[in-house]
Amino acid sequence: MTSWRPSNGLFLCWAALMVLLALTVTLAYQPLGFFNFVVALAIATAKAGLVMIIFMELGNRPGLVRAFAGAGFFWLMILLWLGLMDFVTRA
């Protein structure tokens, strides 16, 4: 029982999340103009993906579970896409 330790996958995931956090803070201070916002959201998406695939175990769950998990994000995409369409296409 004393020999138990978390899997390497969990440690790697945590380390990757910390690296991405350091990266996003560093890049936020670089003058990239509009791309600062894009980069911040892209890194946030990568971090969220790691949490969902490794910590929430979606990487090895059956298709049914993934479908339930994906449904929420699918509807979120519809919300953001249709909701923002008007604003971002207006001059």
Partner: peptide
């Protein structure tokens, strides 16, 4: 929180 962090704390840091 990962998304809130990106939306709240990171904007405007390079300006």
């Amino acid at each position: 929180w990962i998304f809130l962090y990106a939306l709240i704390y990171l904007p405007g840091r390079s300006g």
